[in-house]
Write a protein that binds this DNA or RNA. Structure first.
Length: 470
DNA sequence: CGTATTTGACCGGCGC
DNA sequence: GCGCCGGTCAAATACG
């Protein structure tokens, strides 16, 4: 009896236990199924991640191979020219370098979209083959400046994508500017301008966009007339540029860009757009951050030979030729073309009006905070020393472009700008505006998504590559 | 003939 | 208020 009782009780216990076990087991099963689901999801995500990695690697390889091919072509052409021009140093012609990257030959004013052969232009022989690649990258887009960083809600007539399709007359333009298109002065004050100083023989440099001249003025203090151009890629594109020769050195061409393209950029427009956009973004982001006087004027000084163009000289014309209210960044690419000359040695920001501003110099990835400027011409004192510059120039050349005596101007700009530790965040903002279309007028057109993506990837590749090679 | 460039006139901002 | 100056317009002109 006892046994039976105990057996029965134990059986009940077993039943209870089995029931409890079943409950626990079912709970465990549920958890396991959830876990399995989570694992499956994780696996999918990991697979997608792997696919993305593979795609990214493919793109990296493609980009790298293209880059290698490009520099091989450049090298071949350089060697050809070395044979043709015996006894002359190949890299002693600054304008050639500018033509390579930004310049427009005066002999090909209207045919820059055609594929030119290298037979006609001995001087620009280096340019032509690479130009198909490079040209593409030469256009302006400041889309990130005012739209994504400054005033996302600003309802510019110029940023309206639909308006690009209806070409207004000049009177319409005037009306648009006066009534609802033109930003008020205080808004204008936040619009960045990018000034590029280059050595160029051509009347204007080829930046990948189409421009129409609409005016010319002789500014006071500079007998060289200033030409005004308007972007004609889209009828209502508000982007304008001013071209003026430097009075002290007539070989220097000062090109100032202003505004935002409201149309899809041609493929040839990537690098310059990215560079100027990045510069403008950096400038404007600086002006909108905690640096009160940061962002009125910026100068990117190129080359190791500061003796040729000291900084005070570099900045001499910029404030004169620029709108006093518009923050301006100057990309100075005027140094002569040694192997390192296209490597911008520093990017300086200063405010011509605010003596309490914090000048910041980017020197090949080394961020330095200077003392308050009492005079903008002191910017040069905060730049890297010549020895440091030359060291980094050599390192740069050895690591990246030793095979080539000529470096893409755009890449140089990119490199200089990407050296900024804050650059990526700024670019992230700029690119996010492009991706999301959250105000980037350039990229409102949905029809060029793939091309845009390619541009962004390329840009990202470029920035990643250059920053990783520091 | 269509398009691009030239150039004088005009407008608005700014300093005195 | 006035003049200066930078920027833009638009008719005239040039060019292909």
């Amino acid at each position: 009896m006892l046994n039976s009782n105990t057996r029965s009780s134990s059986a009940e216990k077993k039943v209870d236990q089995s029931v409890g076990y079943q409950e626990v087991h079912s709970r465990d099963l549920r958890k396991e199924s959830e876990l399995d689901n989570a694992k499956a999801e994780l696996g999918e995500v990991m697979e997608e991640n792997a696919r993305l990695k593979i795609t990214l690697n493919h793109m990296k390889k493609d980009y790298h191979s293209l880059q290698v091919r490009f520099f091989e072509i450049l090298k071949q052409q350089a060697s050809k020219k070395a044979v043709n021009v015996a006894g002359h140093r190949i890299i002693e012609e600054p304008e050639e370098l500018l033509s390579l990257c930004l310049g427009r030959s005066p002999r090909e004013p209207k045919s820059d979209r055609e594929t030119t052969t290298s037979s006609n232009f001995t001087k620009h022989a280096q340019v032509d083959d690479g130009e198909e690649n490079l040209k593409a990258n030469l256009t302006l887009g400041l889309g990130s400046d005012e739209n994504s960083l400054e005033e996302p809600n600003k309802n510019h007539a110029e940023t309206g994508g639909g308006e690009a399709s209806s070409p207004p007359s000049s009177k319409t333009l005037k009306t648009m500017r006066n009534e609802d298109g033109e930003p008020p002065p205080q808004v204008n004050a936040k619009r960045a301008r990018v000034s590029v100083r280059t050595r160029c023989d051509a009347p204007t440099m080829n930046d990948g966009c189409q421009w129409r001249k609409y005016g010319q003025k002789t500014a006071k203090g500079n007998p060289c007339p200033r030409a005004y151009y308007r972007c004609t890629v889209a009828p209502a594109c508000p982007v304008r540029k001013q071209v003026q020769r430097c009075y002290e050195d007539m070989s220097i061409l000062i090109t100032t860009y202003e505004g935002t393209h409201n149309h899809p950029l041609p493929f040839t427009a990537t690098s310059m757009a990215s560079t100027t956009s990045a510069a403008a973004s950096m400038l404007l982001s600086g002006s909108s951050t905690s640096h009160p006087g940061f962002g009125s004027t910026a100068t990117l000084i190129n080359g190791s030979e500061f003796g040729a163009f000291d900084n005070s000289r570099t900045q001499l014309y910029m404030p004169k030729s620029s709108h006093p209210l518009l923050p301006t960044i100057t990309l100075d690419l005027t140094a002569s073309t040694s192997s390192s000359s296209t490597f911008p040695s520093s990017l300086s920001f200063c405010s011509p009006s605010d003596s309490n501003s914090l000048p910041i110099s980017w020197g090949n990835g080394y961020l330095k905070y200077g003392l308050p400027l009492s005079d903008k011409t002191q910017v040069g004192s905060y730049n890297l020393g010549k020895a440091s510059q030359e060291y980094f120039h050599q390192t740069y050349a050895e690591k990246i472009h030793q095979a080539s005596s000529q470096v893409s101007l755009t890449e140089s700009l990119t490199n200089a700008i990407t050296s900024d530790p804050n650059f990526k965040s700024v670019i992230a903002v700029a690119l996010s505006s492009m991706v999301g279309g959250g105000g980037g007028a350039i990229h409102r057109n949905q029809g060029e998504g793939c091309e845009r993506m390619g541009k962004q990837l390329k840009w990202d590749e470029a920035t990643h590559q250059f920053t990783s090679q520091k």
